[in-house]
Design a protein around this nucleic acid. Structure first.
Lengths: 207, 207
DNA sequence: ACAGCCATGTAACTCGTTACATGATTAC
DNA sequence: GTAATCATGTAACGAGTTACATGGCTGT
């Protein structure tokens, strides 16, 4: 009991706690919309293989549309020849919900990991000319604006059920967190650009 | 020309641009000290395998201590029986420096990826009781303080050569960025804790 | 009819980790 | 002498990606 799955499995499982029954495709879209800001967007193929694993462990239940051979993917035997077409939806099982609770209460979250290629390249700024670094940072500010806008749209979609006790309360808190993060990062990077600009001008003046 | 290496390879290569000649072990320590805040800390074993690859590509040069069989690890032949002991140091080659420049100028950095287990669990806060979520956030604040302190020590170590034009100018800029990030995150999370506390009290009052 | 999205997977591969194994040097 | 740190790797594995393959369904 309590075989450990990777965090991404629980993340996908968690996306199924918001009520509905989703296809792998829809789950991927949900991950792209929200999960990608705080975790990752797994590839389509990974979504399907994670769902297969979650099904094996009994943490999700399946239902087929437009075809018989309903649910459960009962194990191991021969004779499965009718899974040709139609989509499969997945929903959280009672066991899945318990597993999620156990995971959230019983395991340490661990610290966040940031893979920030822009910061990495700034660290190595002495390798290239200042102009290159400044241009990179300016492009990053634009990218931040784009990402922020996307998150704003997500946040907007939660309005109406984002109050205390309502279903999207926690997603909206996390979205606010993300928006604040973007604002702050924009401010920092803008300041950095100014600092680098000043230095460059001073250097040109001196020779 | 221009075979693409993973970003982590360039990150390690970049750590060799600050002058000295390092062993794999020392390189790992450097990565642990600074790189881990903006990128990742590769495992010891990966440091060695990356160094082997960088050597193959001619981007770093090796030197042996306390033993003959010096440098270059010239290829492919039979007869290598004297690599028993002593440490090997690595330094950036001219080709390596060119490769790094090309990479920094010619490839898109891409957007940052954040794997934030605390944010993920906050997103799923409706699965557990508010107390669990609040406790998790409080633990996160403590972890932030610890990490921030570690970064402060790194920043302090750069003092004296962190001015414009000096060798650790860019590392110090990135460190300042990181410190600001930690400050901001602490502020956000503290606010979130307060919000959740208020809600919990109100809920208890209402029943 | 064709484009674009919905829907599901397989195969090959790389990155990166943990566990394991070995031995030298330094500090107490 | 023995514990900690320095130093270097190998082997097995898992997570996650890209490329590929397939086909249905929907709007124009």
């Amino acid at each position: 009991m309590g075989q450990d799955l990777p965090v991404t499995s629980y993340a996908l499982l968690g996306l199924l706690t918001f009520g509905d029954e989703l296809t792998g495709y829809e789950l991927k879209q949900r991950a792209d919309a929200t999960l990608r800001f705080y975790w990752v967007s797994p590839a389509m193929s990974q979504v399907y293989s994670e769902l297969a694993r979650l099904t094996e462990h009994g943490l999700v239940l399946t239902r087929s549309r437009r075809s018989n051979s309903q649910g459960r993917s009962s194990g191991r035997g021969a004779s499965d020849g009718a899974e040709t077409s139609g989509s499969t939806t997945y929903r959280l099982s009672a066991k899945g919900r318990r597993a999620l609770e156990t995971w959230m209460r019983g395991t340490e979250p661990g610290f966040s990991v940031l893979k920030h290629p822009v910061a990495l390249r700034l660290l190595l700024g002495h390798v290239v000319d200042p102009g290159t670094t400044i241009a990179m940072l300016e492009a990053h500010v634009e990218a931040l604006d784009t990402e922020r806008e996307a998150l704003v749209r997500v946040r907007e979609g939660l309005r109406g059920s984002d109050g205390p006790g309502q279903p999207f309360r926690h997603p909206s808190l996390v979205a606010d967190w993300g928006l604040d993060y973007f604002d702050n990062e924009r401010r920092i990077v803008t300041t950095l650009i100014e600092r680098l600009h000043e230095e460059e001008l001073r250097e040109e003046a001196d020779g």
